[in-house]
């Protein structure tokens, strides 16, 4: 039987969406519903993984498999899932505090591996679920209303960090440009390797600086005629990285949206694994048969054969 074509509405669960009215996240899930429908994503083979914070609930609002993990740990959970079943389509939704604060070590480590998955960062500059403290994306000197004093810590540049960490697809989008975001998500999913999308997203309750108006006035889309982020040759990697980093420091008055860096040449972690373990992609850990009628597949003879180095016969 031909499976019925799922619509965007089919990718929405009936879990009540309890984000604040007007939340910047609405646009993110809306774009996901549409992107998943357009990509005909199989709900059982698509996994939305989230951390803690407002973004954490994303896993419950999308009608695919959802794994709502720990604060800062969405990436290692996701890698365990993806590496033991590389056929899965894995989308991570995590906040800026989650990825760049408590989970920064994991963020850098994923880039080094280039595991084939998508990281969607909900970039709202604040820790909303705990009353709006400064997130690592909030610039020094800024004072959203929940802060008593202006922020005295510098911000991380997520795009530059992703590029230097080794992510092979690095983009920025904005939750209020749903078509742009949807297309960026689809591009990121199609990309082979670790893809990072910095998604600008106003927190309507705690951040009175980075509002819809603020972003609407500043964002612009990078256009193909004067911007080429794609690495075509390995010799180009460094130059394209430098170009992306320079562009990423263009903020405040004008905020570019689009793909900053795209490198289809670096092998994915899965490819690196299958190079030394040729059966890996065909029969990954989750698909391995480990028993036969309740017995281990390693019988006595095989045990002796495998572990001969440890066996001494007297």
């Amino acid at each position: 039987m031909e499976p019925k074509q799922l619509t965007a509405a089919d990718y929405r669960t009936d879990v009540w969406n309890d984000w604040c009215p007007g939340c910047g996240n609405f646009g993110i899930v809306a774009a996901m519903y549409q992107a998943l429908a357009e990509m005909k994503a199989d709900p059982a083979e698509t996994v939305v993984i989230s951390g803690i914070g407002c973004s954490g609930k994303t896993a419950h609002f999308v009608n695919t498999t959802g794994v709502h993990t720990l604060h800062g740990r969405s990436l290692p959970f996701a890698q365990g899932i993806k590496l033991s079943n590389p056929a899965l389509n894995v989308l991570i939704n995590a906040g800026d505090g989650d990825l760049l604060g408590i989970g920064l070590g994991h963020f850098v480590a994923l880039g080094r591996r280039n595991v084939d998955l998508v990281v969607m960062m909900h970039d709202n500059t604040v820790y909303a679920l705990t009353k709006g403290q400064a997130a690592p994306t909030l610039h020094r000197g800024e004072k959203p209303k929940a802060l008593n004093e202006p922020n005295i810590q510098d911000s991380v540049n997520p795009i530059a960090l992703a590029v230097t960490s080794g992510y092979t697809f690095v983009a920025r989008s904005y939750s209020s440009r749903i078509n742009h975001l949807k297309e960026t998500i689809k591009q990121a999913v199609r990309h082979k390797g670790s893809a990072f999308i910095d998604i600008l997203q106003p927190c309507v309750t705690f951040d009175d600086i980075h509002t819809y108006d603020y972003y609407n006035k500043r964002v612009y889309e990078l256009k193909a005629d004067d911007w080429n982020p794609i690495v075509k040759d390995e010799n180009e990697i460094q130059q394209k990285m430098m170009q992306a980093i320079a562009k990423s420091f263009e903020v405040d008055d004008r905020i570019p949206l689009g793909v900053f860096y795209e490198n289809p040449l670096t092998p994915t972690f899965e490819e690196r694994l299958s190079e030394k373990l040729p059966s890996y992609l065909g029969t990954p850990p989750s698909r391995e048969k480990i028993e036969k009628n309740g017995k281990t597949i390693v019988d006595g003879d095989k045990f002796v054969e495998i572990f001969s180095q440890f066996i001494v016969e007297y």
């Binding site: 969406n17 009215p21 939340c23 609405f26 646009g27 809306a30 519903y33 549409q34 209020s176 749903i178």
Partner: peptide
């Protein structure tokens, strides 16, 4: 729906993601 992708229903306290709804 083409730009934001959602509207909000104050009565239902929920975002709406499809035009028909």
């Amino acid at each position: 729906f083409g730009s934001l992708g959602w509207v909000y229903c104050i009565d239902c306290k929920a975002p709406i993601f499809e035009m028909e709804e």
